Lab assay of single mutants.
Amino acid sequence: KELVLVLYDYQEKSPREVTVKKGDILTLLNSTNKDAWKVEVDDRQGFIPAAYLKKL
């Protein structure tokens, strides 16, 4: 599985998104959309803007 590093805090703005903190390391589920990547956070799945993430 692929991991990503969170570069900036992000507060979810819709039910399809998830809230993350800078420095979190998350499982990347889908990065086919260049604008928003799907990740898993504490058994929740949701989207975060790709600009907030860096592949490890």
Rank of each mutant, 00 (worst) to 15 (best):
K55F: 08
Q11K: 13
T19C: 06
S31K: 06
G23N: 05
K55D: 02
L3K: 11
V4T: 02
K1P: 12
K54W: 10
L5T: 04
L26G: 05
L7H: 00
V41Y: 09
N30T: 08
R44D: 03
L3E: 05
E40A: 13
A36V: 15
D43W: 07
F47S: 04
L29R: 03
K34T: 11
D42A: 13
Q45C: 11
Q45G: 05
I48T: 02
G23H: 04
S14M: 07
A51W: 14
K1A: 10
A51L: 11
T19A: 05
V20G: 03
N33C: 13
N33V: 05
Q45P: 06
Q11V: 14
P49F: 07
E17S: 08
N33R: 12
A36Y: 15
V39S: 00
L56G: 01
K21S: 09
L5Y: 09
V41E: 02
D24Y: 08
L3H: 08
T19L: 04
D9Y: 07
K34N: 12
P49C: 08
W37L: 01
L5G: 01
A51G: 12
K38H: 12
G46Y: 15
Q45E: 11
L56E: 02
A50F: 04
I25F: 04
D9E: 04
Q11G: 07
I25L: 06
D43E: 11
Y52F: 12
K54D: 05
D9K: 03
L29A: 03
G23W: 05
E12P: 13
L5Q: 07
K55N: 05
N33K: 08
D24K: 06
R44E: 04
I25H: 02
E2G: 11
L29P: 00
R16V: 12
G23E: 01
A51Q: 13
Y8R: 14
T32G: 10
G23K: 00
K1W: 11
V6N: 00
P15A: 11
T27F: 11
K22N: 03
L29E: 02
S31F: 06
V6H: 00
L26P: 01
L26Q: 00
Y10F: 07
I25Y: 04
L5N: 00
P49N: 05
K55P: 09
P49L: 07
I48A: 05
I48V: 15
D9H: 05
D9L: 04
G46A: 12
E40N: 05
Q45D: 06
Y8D: 10
P49S: 05
L29G: 01
T32E: 14
L7E: 02
V6S: 01
K21Y: 10
F47W: 15
F47A: 03
L53Q: 00
Q45K: 09
F47N: 04
L3I: 07
S31D: 14
E17D: 06
R44V: 07
Y52E: 00
I48Q: 02
E12I: 14
L3Q: 10
K22T: 05
L7Q: 03
Y10L: 02
K22R: 13
Q11M: 12
K54I: 12
R44F: 09
E40R: 11
V39T: 00
Y8F: 13
K54T: 09
E40K: 11
Q11C: 12
K54E: 11
G46D: 03
L5E: 08
L28M: 03
K54G: 04
T19D: 03
K1H: 12
D42Y: 10
G23V: 02
K1T: 11
V39D: 00
K38Y: 15
V6T: 02
N30S: 14
V6Q: 01
L7V: 06
K1R: 14
A51S: 13
W37A: 00
E12V: 10
W37R: 00
V41A: 09
V20H: 03
Y10N: 02
L26I: 13
D9P: 04
L26A: 07
K38F: 15
T19Q: 05
T27Y: 12
K38G: 04
E17V: 05
K13M: 11
K38S: 08
A51T: 11
E2F: 12
K1S: 09
N33W: 09
V4D: 00
K55G: 03
D43T: 10
K22E: 06
P49Y: 06
V20M: 02
T27C: 10
L5M: 10
I48W: 02
K1G: 09
N33F: 10
Q45F: 08
Y52I: 13
K55W: 07
L53W: 02
F47Q: 03
I48R: 02
P49V: 06
E12R: 14
K38C: 15
F47D: 07
A51F: 13
V39N: 00
A51Y: 13
L28Y: 02
E2K: 11
D43P: 03
K13Y: 06
K21R: 13
R44M: 07
R16S: 14
K13G: 08
K21N: 07
N30K: 06
S14K: 07
D42S: 10
V18W: 10
D35E: 12
D42P: 05
V6R: 01
K13P: 06
T19M: 05
T27P: 08
L56Q: 05
V6K: 00
V4K: 02
K13F: 09
R16F: 15
G46S: 06
A36W: 15
L5F: 07
V4L: 03
N33E: 10
P49K: 05
D9T: 05
L26E: 00
Q11S: 12
L7M: 09
V20D: 01
W37E: 00
G46R: 05
D35A: 12
F47K: 02
L56K: 02
K1L: 12
Y8V: 10
S31P: 04
E12D: 06
S14F: 09
E12N: 07
L56T: 04
K21T: 07
S14L: 08
T27V: 15
N33I: 06
Y10T: 00
W37S: 00
Y10C: 04
Y52Q: 03
V20W: 11
I25C: 06
S31V: 05
V20T: 03
N30L: 09
V20S: 03
